[in-house]
Write a protein that binds this DNA or RNA. Structure first.
Ligand SMILES: [Mn+2]
Ligand SMILES: [Mn+2]
Ligand SMILES: [Mn+2]
Ligand SMILES: [Mn+2]
Lengths: 220, 220
DNA sequence: TTTTATTTTTAGACAAATCTAAATCACTAA
DNA sequence: TTAGTGATTTAGATTTGTCTAAAAATAAAA
């Protein structure tokens, strides 16, 4: 049985995200930027993760996450997202405050704890940012979703997730009145700068830059 | 502002308990036994805790916890006990399963988390083992309580806490039907071996050894 | 193809927390 | 009052995770 340390677990989760769930290859510098540690530290960690067979690592050529690695990462992600649900649903945190705390909580060891928490929360399928919560076997039911950018003029959809979960971005969304579950319609698209105007819940109109529109994911 | 590492926090909590809340002096071997680490490791840690002024440490003569140390220990204890309440009240853990998990949870950094948790739990005053939960300023309202041993024959009282919180002892109490809040009456005391017979809730009679009786605390 | 720039790894150091083995101190029992 | 025992500390090693500085490898440009 593979056991990971606290830090290895963190790296693996970051690698999973950078891998886009296992498709893309990932470089040392990618991981360094994501983890905010120096490339030298990353090299060392990659060697260890390679030895534990959770990634396939070739010196100077980056890494690929393995099936085993994916499974373990998904367990950590499951815990993280369940705690995020707990913090928002039960403790009334706002969605921009939960990530850091959930990161801490998700390192608590007990299996039973997570089972009971899941049950207590009513087996939620998505976290406060719209990201799917893997089940205890690591299965994750993805739903097709695309950035507002990719919608045609006049098309309608529903906001189901955000790509960027940084507090700054989430607070911006709060301010303009965008939220997970909101029904939207694309009212205008500006070719020149990629900005978009959408109508939320048939009531409120929001202008947003290309950058913002690219970070809001909708289901059509 | 004094900041303690994960391990220092654990040691300080153990020291607080061994100090009986600050009265008694504590030896290196005491701490070693409590923490299940070697005396050599303890010596090193005591030096560090001494440098941080959370204990007063004289080589070869043991230690005393300082006021500052008490405050910090009580913060950790507060977190620990609030999490224990959460696990029992909300996640349906039994009282013999919570200590280890609560130990992990109580190292999560966020202040806000603990405030919100406290609020969510309805500002509980006691944990599942009957121990008082310090408030955010470290104030702890103690109530007079004494071991069943010290009760006279025929006297009545109410179980308010246990001195030993080990799973083995707690499961024993479950088995014989003793619990926090139970009303008891001392029916018999045997001088010879210190064993006691009590009547629980005017219904169930329990025989217990001196050892057991000494670990059940009652309010008269 | 050769040079240059960028990325990545190695080497060496450090802090934290632990251990074992050896040395030292303090108390106690002759 | 001193020898011996037990408690405690020191010395030195190990693991984990991080860093800086320097070396090496790859990728890009000339
Ligand atoms: Mn998160
Ligand atoms: Mn999330
Ligand atoms: Mn406890
Ligand atoms: Mn307790």
């Amino acid at each position: 049985m593979i056991t990971l340390t606290f830090a290895e677990e963190n790296y693996l989760k970051a690698i999973y995200h950078l891998s886009d769930g296992g498709k893309k290859g990932v470089s040392t510098n990618d991981v360094s930027a994501e983890m905010k540690t120096k490339p030298a530290s990353v090299s060392d960690m990659l060697r260890k993760l390679g030895e534990k067979d959770v990634i396939e690592y070739r010196k100077y050529y980056g890494l690929h996450i393995t099936e085993e690695g994916k499974k373990l990462a998904l367990q950590t992600i499951r815990k993280h997202r369940l705690w995020e649900v707990f913090l928002v649903e039960k403790l009334k945190f706002s969605w921009d405050e939960v990530d850091e705390v959930a990161d801490d909580l998700s390192h608590v060891k007990s299996q039973v704890l997570i089972q009971r928490l899941d049950e207590y929360l009513g087996f939620p399928k998505f976290d406060p940012h719209g990201d799917p919560i893997p089940d205890e076997y690591g299965d994750v039911r993805t739903r097709p979703r695309l950035p507002i950018n990719d919608l045609d003029l006049g098309s309608i959809g529903q906001i189901v997730a955000v790509k960027d979960s940084s507090p700054a971005f989430l607070r911006y969304l709060d301010k303009v009145g965008a939220y997970i579950g909101a029904r939207i319609k694309v009212m205008d698209k500006t070719e020149f700068d990629g900005s978009v105007e959408i109508l939320v819940d048939n009531k409120k109109s929001i202008f947003m830059s290309k950058d913002v529109a690219g970070n809001i994911l909708v289901m059509v």
